[in-house]
């Protein structure tokens, strides 16, 4: 019986809603709905990190491997502001985002721009960002040490019950803050001058140069915005994951997988990919086996790359090399 809407959708042209009837079927069970709910805040974090990868990739065609460690740096700076200097969470979040925007800009000016100007092959640029990642990680190790740090949550972590479902205010905060940041980003991309320039460069870099757009400037904007998003992701995830100098490796990798699932360089795709990955991880961990959770995640990545190399959520396949 439930297959009817499924088949109707199958006949549709878009493949997007294909997942929905399947999802509704799954979610009729309360336990599964709980897994779904648990996947949302993590998904929101993954989406922010995936966005930061995609933003830089779309604007400058560079894969920035230091993104995960930028998340870690943002979390540590926020942790220090909140717990050592004793300013509030919102102030900490803002300062951390501003500081990281400057760090992002610095990476672009000090590393990317000189390599670009010397016409270095793309692989050198990627390796350089990997170097930045290792540098940030070791600096953090020296400053904050090897032990995990507990960053207290700005809101309560006591669960709220909706029937037999539970969710914590902290999870709601992460979800809401993540969505707010995504909306702000979309708004800036669509409305602001820098955002329009960035989208023009993403569409066709050389045409944009011919139209008089300063690509170094738009690259800088992309790096700053990305690092800022990363800092926010780090701040939001800190109360649930703790802050450690090596947390960037895992978050960076998961964010990258989400970006690839959504189609690298595709902004709405990155958001969808992040939530998709968060929910799949939670479901796979609970319904199949927690031991195989990561195996399932990466098997999914391979499957996506195999079946839909441009990402699950890209409707028109466009090659970007």
């Amino acid at each position: 019986m439930w297959l009817v809407p499924f088949m109707v959708v199958m006949k549709g042209t878009s493949e997007y809603p294909l997942l929905f009837p399947l999802l509704f079927q799954w979610l009729r069970d309360v336990v599964k709905l709980q897994y779904f709910l648990n996947g949302l805040p993590i998904g929101s974090i993954y989406a922010l990190v995936a966005l930061s990868y995609s933003l830089i990739y779309a604007a400058s065609g560079v894969l920035n491997w230091s993104q995960g460690d930028i998340v870690m740096l943002g979390a540590f700076i926020g942790f220090t502001i909140i717990n050592v200097i004793k300013l509030g969470f919102t102030t900490g979040l803002l300062i951390s985002m501003i500081v990281l925007a400057l760090v992002g800009l610095l990476i672009q000016i000090a590393i990317l721009q000189p390599l670009r100007n010397r016409q270095a092959p793309p692989i050198n640029v990627v390796i350089a960002t990997l170097g930045v990642a290792i540098l940030i990680r070791n600096v953090a190790l020296v400053i904050w040490g090897a032990d995990a740090q507990n960053s207290p949550s700005p809101v309560s972590t006591k669960p709220i019950y909706l029937g037999s479902l539970s969710i914590t205010p902290q999870d709601i905060l992460i979800l809401m803050a993540g969505i707010a940041l995504m909306v702000i980003l979309q708004f800036l991309l669509k409305r602001s001058k820098e955002g329009k320039a960035l989208r023009a460069v993403a569409q066709d870099r050389y045409a944009a140069i011919l139209m008089g757009i300063d690509t170094n400037r738009s690259d800088g904007v992309a790096f700053a915005a990305s690092a800022s998003l990363g800092a926010a992701a780090g701040m939001l995830v800190a109360p649930i994951f703790f802050v450690t100098f090596n947390m960037g490796a895992l978050i960076g990798l998961k964010g990258f997988v989400a970006a690839v699932i959504g189609g690298l360089g595709n902004i709405p795709g990155a958001i969808a990919g992040g939530f998709f990955l968060g929910i799949i991880e939670s479901m796979a961990g609970g319904q199949i086996s927690s031991g195989y959770r990561d195996a399932i995640t990466y098997a999914l990545l391979i499957l996506v790359l195999w079946l839909k190399p441009a990402g699950l959520f890209l409707r028109k396949t466009r090659q970007k090399v």
Partner: peptide
């Protein structure tokens, strides 16, 4: 090194 233990905890 895992960070999210909620799936197992729900089981």
């Amino acid at each position: 090194g895992d960070k999210d233990f909620k799936p197992q905890l729900l089981s």
